[in-house]
């Protein structure tokens, strides 16, 4: 009960700051623009996508729809969402440290563990709201604007998922995307417990993510060896929701790695926060 109250408090604080709305604003403005751009170039996308199909099949009708647009948006924009998460999750402890408000909270007869848990839950709630909003603005708006139909994705060639299956697959992919973003939120949260300024955790978390993604993309032997151990390697986990059949074994393995990272980040966060001297 108390944890619920504390988490509610944290959400009031998070949504009392203008920076919280930056993420929603960015998604709310940019995604419709990107969808509009995609709709303008829909013919070109369709031609490029079905070129391979036309060599062997007769393609009737259009494969360009809201589903394909959403799939394209997720491919291009998903790596940028961590920045929006970092804006809030990186600030949730450090921002209060620099503002001095943390010290008022920590002089109450409530354990630091509970206070930190409430902050974590609020950060996770914000993260999942961002993912949900991304889903609404891409899949929701895309399907309303551009219609629905079969979904054509690239996996070992071209794979056509029927319309009836596409909704479920998108649901799964956003669930996986949510899991990835919770790892990002946990990383930001860990950085947030280490310093007393809001910028440090944002830069720190983004630096880790950018370096991790670079390692995932550069074909060098050493990088290839360490790649399986980096959580950023699994940033494209959401794409596996569109494979046929869905590789549940591989997905479970990757989710377990992401979970291990999350637990690691949280253990470090709690160890730091429960022992640190509050000097601000």
């Amino acid at each position: 009960m108390m944890l619920l109250r504390l988490t509610g408090n944290e959400l009031v604080k998070i949504f009392g700051k203008w920076r919280t709305y930056l993420g929603f604003l960015a998604i709310g403005v940019l995604l419709p623009l990107v969808l509009w751009g995609i709709s303008l170039g829909g013919g070109e996308i369709e031609r490029n996508t079905v070129r391979q199909l036309r060599e062997n099949f007769i393609v009737v009708g259009s494969i360009f729809n809201g589903f394909l647009a959403t799939y394209i948006v997720m491919n291009f924009l998903w790596v940028h969402v961590p920045f929006l998460i970092a804006l809030v999750a990186g600030d949730v402890v450090a921002g209060e440290g620099s503002a001095g408000t943390l010290r008022i909270y920590l002089t109450r007869p409530i354990s630091r563990g509970k206070i930190l848990t409430a902050k974590l839950l609020a950060s996770y709630a914000y993260t999942l709201m961002i993912v949900l909003f991304f889903a609404l603005m891409s899949l929701g708006l895309g399907s309303l604007w551009l219609g629905t139909g079969d979904l054509v994705v690239r996996h070992e060639g071209l794979l056509i998922l029927p319309k009836s299956m596409a909704w479920t697959r998108f649901g799964l992919s956003f669930l996986f995307a949510g899991a990835i973003m919770l790892v990002v939120a946990s990383l930001c949260f860990m950085f947030s417990t280490t310093v007393n300024n809001a910028i440090g955790p944002i830069i720190g978390a983004m630096a880790v993510i950018v370096i991790g993604l670079a390692i995932a993309g550069i074909p060098i032997g050493f990088f290839e060896q360490i790649r399986p151990y980096l959580f950023t390697t699994y940033f494209d986990l959401w794409q596996q929701a569109f494979y046929d059949p869905i590789p549940w074994g591989e997905i479970s393995r990757q989710l377990a790695i992401l979970l291990a990272y999350t637990v690691g980040f949280l253990v470090v966060s709690f160890l730091i926060f429960t022992k640190k001297d509050i000097l601000s």
Partner: peptide
């Protein structure tokens, strides 16, 4: 306790700041 300067959530009113603290302890 009041430790050094009184720091609050500047974007919230006094009443809301106090309400945040009040809800912590019922």
């Amino acid at each position: 306790a009041l430790v050094e300067e009184a720091d609050f959530y500047e974007y919230l009113s006094a009443r809301k700041n106090l309400r945040l603290l009040a809800t912590m302890e019922g």
